[in-house]
Write a protein that binds this DNA or RNA. Structure first.
Lengths: 237, 237
DNA sequence: TCACTCAAAGTGATTAGATGACTTAAACAC
DNA sequence: GTGTTTAAGTCATCTAATCACTTTGAGTGA
């Protein structure tokens, strides 16, 4: 009758508790698997199974020959599924639709929050945009925008959406004009600086809708006269 | 120079690919660990580590003595961190703020979508509300609302937010009036049926703000005259 | 003294085989 | 038929050992 929780699941939880109670920060190393095995009175393979679980969610990283490191995601609530195999255009459009639904509200919050350091991060993100597109890390304008909202859950949601999108083929080929992108970002940031939440939300929405249109246009160019536009329609309903 | 991807990570991906290519649906069983080990030419412990990773993200479930089962989350893009240790009121308020930021937009989409079956699901969710609160499964009104938006990413985001919230202490004690909850849900559904997205969004926002106020009031009652309202202020900035 | 080499120690990665515990379903007795 | 028992299949965990990678620092040479 004892609800079998499973040794590995319990062990996983104990390791997380250890990380928290000892206040281990991302980048620091955990004790070796051998030591953990001794401390929790289990064997090494069992510890490894627990660490693999934590690895899957980005809470820790197992570096061969080096050690087990705490990672950022241990403090995240919302994650992107690392095992998801995505990828058609419809999925990419769906992600953009989701962003259109939530980012305007985030921009509004950012304008209301008026956190000075967050605004600074967005400014530097504006410049970084000239660089090569990084995967989806910090420094991305929209991510910094979400961070500026002051709401960690919203920030993590946007990070997740962008992470998923980065795995899409469409992500690389989006030929949205770099300069136009920069200008529109600047406009959004401007509205936020003025504390004009309504305008910030509006410009964010327009910006994303423009990107969506560009992606659809790109796709139309590639497939040219192949007439299966049903995919697009299906994703817009 | 070969980017060491790690055997387990590669194996994890191969198992996912197998599930997809063989079109295994949630509820169905995977081959036994022994068989998988033979098929991919690795040993059983290695297979188990890969399965533990998939287990962490809810893609599979390992049932002792029974088998390894495919689970729903294998098709999800957005997940809640299963290893997150949650907690205080500020976090609960932050989650509600996030919902206030995104759910009105979702309600607007739902009104525009006008999917008949989705509306039916919301109707039945209305009645289920009289039952005991389930964990965070389907059947929850707000979850069905998100499903009705037609956007899977948004739906999964809301499921994740509610899943996290359910782990909060505050979740259980929220004494938001059951009847009032039901009535406000009915109002939202009514606006969606009429296709009035603006009104649906507005009512959803008001509804969530009322819940937030109730949570804060509850907390104020409990702590009574303990004057550390700084926690609340901090979450509202 | 400085820089380079390289050997050793520590750590994770993977393998191998064995035992225990649980679930399920078929075989059996009633 | 019904209920119990048995057996096979499966995951759970352990023990033990070998391999591979990383880091460090001692040693060597310039």
């Amino acid at each position: 009758m004892t609800s079998t929780v499973g040794l590995v699941e319990r062990l996983t939880r104990e390791i997380v508790d250890t990380i928290r109670s000892e206040n281990l920060q991302p980048g620091q190393t955990l004790p070796s698997a051998k030591v953990l095995a001794a401390r929790f009175e289990v064997t090494v393979p069992t510890v490894r199974e627990a660490l693999r679980r934590l690895e899957a969610t980005g809470s820790v990283e197992l570096k061969h020959g080096s050690g087990t490191y705490v990672r950022e995601a241990i403090n995240r609530r919302i994650l992107d599924n690392p095992h998801y195999v995505p990828v058609d255009l419809a999925a990419a459009i769906e992600l953009l639709d989701a962003r259109i639904a939530i980012e305007p509200g985030i921009a509004g919050l950012a304008a209301a929050a008026q956190a000075p350091d967050a605004v600074a991060s967005m400014e530097s993100a504006l410049d970084n945009a000239l660089q090569v597109e990084t995967a989806v890390p910090a420094g991305h304008f929209h991510v910094e925008l979400a961070r500026a909202s002051g709401n960690r859950a919203l920030h993590e949601m946007l990070v997740s959406l962008l992470a998923i999108n980065s795995r899409t083929q469409q992500a690389a080929r989006t030929s949205y004009d770099r300069l136009r992108d920069h200008d529109e970002h600047a406009d959004i940031l401007d509205a936020i600086r003025r504390g004009d939440g309504f305008e910030a939300a509006h410009r964010t929405r327009k910006h994303l809708e423009a990107i969506k249109a560009a992606v659809l246009a790109d796709w139309a160019d590639d497939t040219d006269q192949t007439g299966d536009a049903a995919i697009i329609e299906g994703s817009q309903r």
